[in-house]
């Protein structure tokens, strides 16, 4: 191949692939809005707040960012809103071990951020992040779950709390909760956490009814 032929191949070939890329980009742009919920003013204000505090300087979203703090794509799906709001405004007051500093995020900004994160959690991401294989398998294989364990799973308690190393770190570890708390305390706490723990960011679960809360309490008492 002569130099001139190599040069022409480089130029024409590159233009060819760039044109294909442009066509795909055009097609993608037409499809993106259908794959995500409508962007309200609140969602946009949340995105602006996201940029203002340079959240991506620590977190990732859709898996892109700084890998220093958790990915937030599905956070709004997994954590209660009340918890998120309190945490955003003063992280260490909610979870003393939290690495996140207090930035001075206002109540309104926190609401906006939560609206933004609710939006991202509903975007069609082709199934990312995938459901963990082993955790999913542990829930269905082997022995039957107790009634309390089923409530624990159905309510997504594991998103914030940890039992035997599995689960979130934002709420207290429950591995030995049965030896720390009694039946009365647990039940009252489930109904209205703030009654027994004044600063708690956990939502109340009174709406589940007595039976479910009794089952859950029984389960907690087995954790010793």
């Amino acid at each position: 191949m002569s130099n001139k032929a190599a040069r022409n191949l480089f130029i024409i070939g590159s233009l060819f692939f760039f044109v294909i890329f442009l066509v795909l980009t055009f097609d993608t742009m037409g499809k993106l809005d259908k794959r995500a919920p409508v962007i309200t003013e609140e969602v946009n204000a949340g995105k602006m707040t996201w940029h203002k505090y340079d959240c991506i300087g620590c977190h990732t979203i859709f898996g892109n960012g700084s890998y220093f703090a958790p990915d937030l794509t599905k956070t709004a799906e997994n954590k209660p809103k009340g918890y998120l709001k309190q945490f955003l405004m003063d992280p260490k007051a909610v979870n003393a071990k939290a690495a996140m500093p207090k930035f001075g995020i206002s109540a309104q900004e926190a609401d906006h951020l939560i609206a933004f994160l609710e939006w991202t959690s509903k975007v069609d991401t082709n199934g990312w992040p995938p459901k963990p294989i082993l955790a999913a398998a542990a829930g269905v294989g082997g022995k039957e779950l107790s009634a309390g364990q089923r409530v624990y799973q159905a309510q997504g308690c594991t998103n914030c709390h940890m039992i035997n190393g599995i689960g979130g770190t934002t709420g207290p570890d429950l591995t030995k909760v049965g030896s720390r708390r009694d039946r009365k305390w647990l039940h009252e706490h489930f109904e209205e956490p703030q009654k027994v723990v004044p600063n708690s960011a956990m939502p109340g679960y009174k709406h589940l009814g007595d039976q479910a809360l009794n089952d859950l309490t029984e389960y907690m008492l087995t954790l010793k």
Partner: peptide, 25 residues
Amino acid sequence: YIEVGLVLFTGILGTGHHYYWIGTP
């Protein structure tokens, strides 16, 4: 020319490896 040509022939559409999970088709 051959090297930079191949860089663009593969790299331009290779951008697609960032479009797996961000809400794109």
